[in-house]
């Protein structure tokens, strides 16, 4: 077992992961995430981005390989320890906003803080501050079903940032949004994370995301590649050429 480099807050070596049905997701991915950086994991759909994020955050257990967080092995932890790690150190943003429907917006945002044992009043103050920062402050007393999707996603990001996690995992946070909303959500996410020193691991199938990130890691079919360079699609494959002279 090799000790990880000291300056990496998150470090993975030779991760292998396959889903329950046996379909392979990751085959030997290694990467290191430095403290405070925004790392974009880029790749087309089905390239193993979500699996990588789940393994790094301890949501799934890798079949083989190591994950270290601040020199603590995550891959040997039991489910309870991983749960505590996720609660106290990590935050997660889903592709579609997964809010608790019966809580209102500020309660949703304050929930991770309250789960950590923060008092209700302090959790509420922090939640309202973050909602204000992410431009959904006026919706604080509304229920999630009264918001539009982009607002819900911003609430999710506020919920992830409010407990000031060490690492924020964002799994395609802009998948269900239009381009204008997409840019705004990503920009607010990265700006807020940078100003508070939160490390961000951002999965995206959109290569434009790389502009907002400090560093980019490309995945293709569960392997790390230097550039996602697929062969160009041949024009009109299989279509009979139609020509008057033939």
């Amino acid at each position: 077992m090799v000790a990880p480099p000291d300056n990496d807050v998150l470090w993975a070596r030779a991760l292998h992961f396959s889903y329950d049905d046996g379909s392979p997701a990751l085959s030997g991915v290694s990467l290191g995430v430095q403290e405070g950086e925004v790392l974009a994991v880029i790749g087309p759909r089905g390239s193993g981005k979500t699996a990588l994020l789940r393994c790094l955050s301890g949501l799934s257990k890798a079949r083989r390989g190591e994950v270290w967080f601040n020199s603590v092995p995550v891959h040997t932890m039991g489910p309870v320890a991983r749960e505590r790690l996720r609660r106290d150190r990590f935050a997660w943003v889903d592709p579609t906003p997964a809010l608790v429907p019966e809580l209102n917006v500020w309660e949703n945002t304050a929930l991770p803080l309250m789960l950590r044992g923060t008092s209700r009043r302090r959790a509420r103050t922090a939640a309202l501050e973050w909602l204000e920062r992410l431009d959904v402050g006026e919706a604080a007393r509304k229920r999630p079903h009264q918001l539009v999707q982009a607002e819900r996603q911003r609430v999710c990001i506020a919920r992830a940032l409010a407990p000031s996690p060490m690492v924020l995992f964002a799994d395609e946070p802009t998948a269900p949004l239009h381009r204008s909303d997409r840019t705004q959500v990503l920009r607010t996410l990265t700006t807020a994370a940078r100003s508070h020193g939160v490390t961000v691991v951002l999965a995206s199938h959109d290569a434009d995301t790389a502009v907002l990130a400090d560093r980019t890691v490309a995945l293709l079919d569960g392997r790390r590649v230097n550039t996602v360079h697929l062969p160009p699609v041949p024009e009109a494959e299989g279509r009979a050429a139609c020509s008057l002279s033939a």
Partner: peptide, 9 residues
């Protein structure tokens, strides 16, 4: 499931 991803015990 969403609560568990948040780390709710």
């Amino acid at each position: 499931a969403a609560l568990l991803r948040l780390g709710a015990p």
